[in-house]
């Protein structure tokens, strides 16, 4: 535990960004005004991007801001602004009992996650090798090569490494995901274009 505290305090950028992301996330779940929630989510996303950069995942950081902050969250905002719900329409607050039950559930889930991470010696190691393990899920030797920066002087997690991993070893799951997304888009189109029965 003291080790973790020392790690956090020894890395002010991480400490500040972690604080911002947690506070942003708390804003999202605690505010009744959806615009404030969206702002909090935006702050959290930007802090995540900095954390990704700290983990050497520069490509992921750029894509995260570009896709989530720059596009998806803007669509959330569109919906919020177009509906422009008043205080009454937003509905009643949950009771203390419900809030407590939700908090307990979330705490248990987080605890389970932390427990699982603590059990796995590889995941419990410092951050950047985790990124490595995702990108180079091969043998320990491959992992060592990656740790030495074997693929040239460029830092891991850059565009070239992610590209090689996505279009090399992981090409099949990658293409499956694209099929999945196409199906989702087609589904949305079918739902939006469906002819409603008259007088409904």
């Amino acid at each position: 535990m003291t080790e973790i505290i020392n790690d956090v305090l020894g890395d002010p950028v991480f400490a500040i960004c972690a604080l911002i992301s947690v506070m942003g996330a708390l804003t999202v779940v605690s505010r009744r005004n959806p615009i404030h929630g969206a702002l909090g989510l935006m702050l959290a996303f930007l802090a995540f991007a900095v954390l990704f950069i700290r983990l050497n995942a520069t490509f992921l950081a750029a894509m995260h801001v570009l896709v989530y902050t720059g596009a998806i969250l803007v669509l959330f905002l569109f919906v919020i602004m177009l509906l422009n719900l008043s205080r009454e329409e937003l509905g009643r607050e949950y009771g203390v009992a419900t809030k407590g039950a939700i908090a307990l559930l979330v705490a248990v889930m987080c605890g389970l996650l932390l427990f699982a991470i603590g059990k796995d010696p590889d995941l419990a190691r410092p951050a950047s090798p985790i990124v490595d393990r995702v990108l180079y899920p091969g043998s320990a030797q491959e992992l060592r090569v990656a740790e030495d920066g074997g693929a040239g002087s460029k830092p891991w997690g850059g565009v070239d490494h992610v590209g090689t991993a996505l279009f090399g070893r992981w090409i099949f799951p990658f293409e499956l995901v694209s099929v999945l997304i196409i199906v989702a888009i087609l589904g949305a189109v079918v739902l939006a274009k469906r002819k409603l029965p008259p007088e409904s």
Binding site: A61, T69, P155
Partner: peptide, 25 residues
């Protein structure tokens, strides 16, 4: 001189959408 270069530019530019959306709202 950052390794992601142009991608950084794209992602930073995508933030300015918020100015328009918030300004209007």
């Amino acid at each position: 001189d950052v390794p992601i270069g142009i991608l950084l530019l794209m992602s930073v530019l995508s933030i300015s959408v918020y100015g328009l959306a918030f300004g209007g709202w």
